[in-house]
Design a protein around this nucleic acid. Structure first.
Lengths: 201, 201, 201, 201
DNA sequence: GATGAATGAGACTTCATTCAT
DNA sequence: AATGAATGAAGTCTCATTCAT
């Protein structure tokens, strides 16, 4: 009965997401994880080879959810800027509304797991896939709206502020309302827009 | 001879910086640390109460070096933009040239150590101190050059891209030459500059 | 099968009793304890939160056995003296025949564990409980047979010699045969009996 | 200058007495001991081979002081009972007034140091020396006043209650005033006196 | 398939002792 | 003679993983 399987696996992943994000990978013992998932410790090892593999799988799940959220409702007929603002706003909303996911991802990227291997994969793999909605936006003929920079630099200018901001929001240093979200999103656009540039220097 | 004292302490801090940045706090046993510092395990505890305290001290050291590097050579008579570009460029160079320090800081901020307490302190404390050179730049009468946004939002737009970019550079995803550094720095400025804004939407 | 559970716990307690009594709490490493109990080190911690808790539990066990042994076969219809002699003799026999238990208890009472907290509890708690068979003997209408002294003083006169004697016996300084046991028991009675007292001074 | 030597040695012994009695042998690090004695750690090892030897030496010191205190003011021309009461009362007063010494001795006797080896020595050594004033009292022609029992048994009946009582007093379970001390001393005498014995059984 | 008792490697930390100054 | 920085053996405890039930 594969239903049971998937259910239990999902329960483990959910418990893991919560525990990892709250306590960190290293301070989330498998025993506690099992308890939270209402599952025997041994059962976890039936679904995941070991703790590392569990983390990897969880990452895939969370990343997928993130990608889905980002592209939600984007209208390809609109202007590049409009699409960009939509995407960025989606991203901010998702991260803001999913603190567990955000904290997990942050931790993942800043651990031996993701620091080299994973981010590389993130970008080098599927060059035309759905995984990176921004890549499509920045390439093609809409690229004239955007500065002539390596993709990584554009990413940095576009995403960097978002991650930084969410972290601060999560730490309670700033409150993210819709107005601010919009302003920051526009700031991100200004950073990459080719139309930008002041006269005085 | 107090020199011996400081020397050994420095050796431990150096070994810690290297090990922590490469393996992470949790995967850098005190024994290995001692070995790398050419010191007995017990000696570490003469200089630092425990592992946490060692991490804390190391943070202070690294942070101080970072702050020094950022303000190096800044000319207060120049325009806000010029000063900003100088500061940001300093920051990028330091992080790029000190991968250990960068990785350590990233890890520190994304751990129970710094996640709430430290960043809060970073910004709420010394309102007029040397600790945050950017805060001075954004306040005062030069604030007209900068968007009307909460400090946190400006920080996010200014620093977010840098951290993101350095991470990618460190992972080998992009090569940071001077030209690119300049371009990204300008992108950061565009993100926060009040002179920015295109006509078409 | 919960039997396995209790069996292993018992094995640990037995090994602990032996080791603690022979080497002292501080010189009985958990590793050696595990070995003697034919158990993995980690297993001990499944049954006892830590070493202190293990000592505490062991104390409860031993104390209970001691209390049981003391009241064994006492006939409440006999005279106060007869009952007292019976109790004291029981006590001497138990301690003499259970050197591990005796040494453990001695050590326990002379450690931060029992020195204040436990002995206080021993006497102040259950005023009418089974825990202290002597207290009943000394109170009530049989109290006329016993000197008018604080309970603690009576305890001292009654038990003090026993503990002292057993210690000497254990050290091989004296051999405890039945005749001697009887004589000492009577000496204890003389110490507390109100009928005692010589004419010449 | 041997004066300096003795002074420093005494300082160490004093600090040791205090620390050992308050924290126990095992929880009194040499470093803390050195600090309390206002002495370098290394210096301790100039006066005592190691920690064990220090404990042994301290025992000798304390025991000597105890023996001196016991025989203080005893009048050999008085009756056996009077002498006994004087000795016992001396003992009680000394222990009551020197809690550090008492706790140290208790701990010493209930440790691998004293449990077998030392007490044996205490009694088997000097059969006619000053070390055991009671032994003289119980032997000779005054022995007719005392029960015909092995010396150890007499010791037990005489000293056992005292140690027990002091312990309780130290734990705050009972307050030792002069009246009570006298009564207990007489109880001890009753326990060993040959004149004792009631008619009813 | 599911469980959780059992395990032992390994982490952190303490502390008696040494020895160069 | 005195010191105290340096050391590493040894102790307690945790936790990922296994395997018999």
């Amino acid at each position: 009965m594969p239903t049971v399987n998937k259910k239990k696996q999902k329960a483990i992943l959910n418990a893991a997401l919560e525990l990892f994000s709250e306590q960190g990978f290293h301070d989330a013992p498998m025993a506690q994880l099992a308890e939270q998932a209402h599952v025997g410790v041994g059962s976890i090892y039936r679904y995941f080879k070991d703790k590392n593999k569990l983390i990897e799988e969880l990452y895939k799940e969370v990343d997928e959810a993130l990608q889905m959220a980002i592209i939600n409702g984007v209208d390809p007929t609109l202007s590049t800027k409009q699409q960009f603002l939509h995407l960025i706003t989606n991203l901010i909303h998702f991260l803001k509304d999913h603190p567990h996911e955000f904290k997990f991802l942050e931790q993942y990227y800043h651990s031996p797991f993701g620091i080299d291997k994973k981010r590389e994969k993130l970008l080098l793999e599927n060059p035309s896939d759905s995984q990176t909605p921004f890549i499509k936006l920045f390439s093609g003929n809409s690229s004239k709206d955007v500065k002539t920079l390596p993709a990584q630099a554009l990413y940095a200018l576009a995403f960097g502020p978002v991650l930084f901001l969410i972290r601060d929001a999560m730490a309670g240093l700033i409150k993210l309302d819709e107005a601010l979200i919009t302003q920051v999103a526009e700031g991100c656009w200004d950073a990459i827009s080719s139309k930008t540039g002041d006269l005085v220097t």
